[in-house]
Amino acid sequence: MNDFHFHAPETIEEAAALLVQHDGNAKLIAGGTALTTLLKQSLVQPEHLVSLHRVKGHDAITHSEGALHIGALATQRAVEKSDVVKKHAPLLAEAYRRVATVRIRNVATVGGGIAHADPAMDPPPSLLILGASVKLMSAKGERTVALSELYVDYYETTMEPDEIVTELEVPDQPAGTAWTYIKYLPRTEDDYATVSVAAIGELKDGMVADVRVGLGALGPTAIRASALEDAVRGTSPTHESLKEASQSVMDIVDPIDDPRGSAGYKRDMSAVFARRAMEQVLGVATG
C-alpha cells in the first residue's frame, strides 16, 4: 500500500470541499471494506483519503411520502435489521442480509456499496427492479440519479469524482407484490454469487399484472431483464411458458470465467434462475 494524507472531516460539506481541493487525487472512504482491499493490492493509489467515519448523521432510515429514505452512512447491517425496511421493502432487507458476513455488514455502508459498483454485490439487482435512486451531493450542489442511470461498467458509475452519495431512496411497491432474491452459491455461504436474481411480481385473475427481474454477477453491471418482463407481463404463466421466455436473458448477460463458474455455465444458469425467481413470485409450480 502507498501512503496517503488521511482526512477525517466532521461534515459532508467539509468532505465535499476536500474532494474539490484535492481534485482527482482523493478517494472517499466510508466503511472501507471494499476500498481497503483495493488499496492493499495497490489497485488504487490515492494521494488523499477522505474518511467519512467522523461525519455525524446521514445514517437515518425513515419512510415518508411513499418512499424509504436510507442515509448513505447507514451500515448494511442496519438496513438488514431495520423494521422500517422490512415493512416497506422486505426484498431490500433480504438483499442486504445476504452481503458477505455480519463482520463486513457491521462496517460497510449503503452509500459505499453503491458507489463501489461491483456488479457481483447483492443489493444492485433488487435496487434496479425497485426503481431506487440515489441523492448525490458535491460542492456544486445536489442531484438525484436513478440506479438504472448510475452503473456504467465494472466499478464505474456516472458519478463525478467530487460527488458523494448521501441518500438511497426506494419507492413503495403496490400492496400484494411478491418478491424473491435467489443467490446461487456453489461454494460457500459468504461468497459472491455465481449468479443472482431478484424478482418481484403480481398476479391478478391468473394473469401477470407485473413482473420485474434483476440479474447480478452476470456482466459489467447489474442488469434489468426488461425484454423478459415485457414478454411475461399480461400472460397466464406456466412452468413451460416461463422456461421459454427465460431463454432471452442469455442474450443480455455477459459473464466472465472465474472460480465461481465458467462464463458458459453462468449464462446457462442465468436462464434457469430467472425462471425459478419468476415461478416463485408468480406462484407457478416448478417443473
Binding site: F6, I29, G32, T36, T37, S51, V102, R103, N106, V107
Partner: peptide, 21 residues
C-alpha cells in the same frame, strides 16, 4: 475471520480497517 475484534461495540475485521480510521 481470524482478525475479528470489537470496534466500538461492533464485530469487525481488523485487517481491512486502517489504524488511522
Amino acid at each position: 475471520g481470524a482478525c475479528t475484534i470489537m470496534l466500538d461495540g461492533a464485530m469487525t475485521a481488523s485487517c481491512i480497517i486502517l489504524a488511522v480510521r
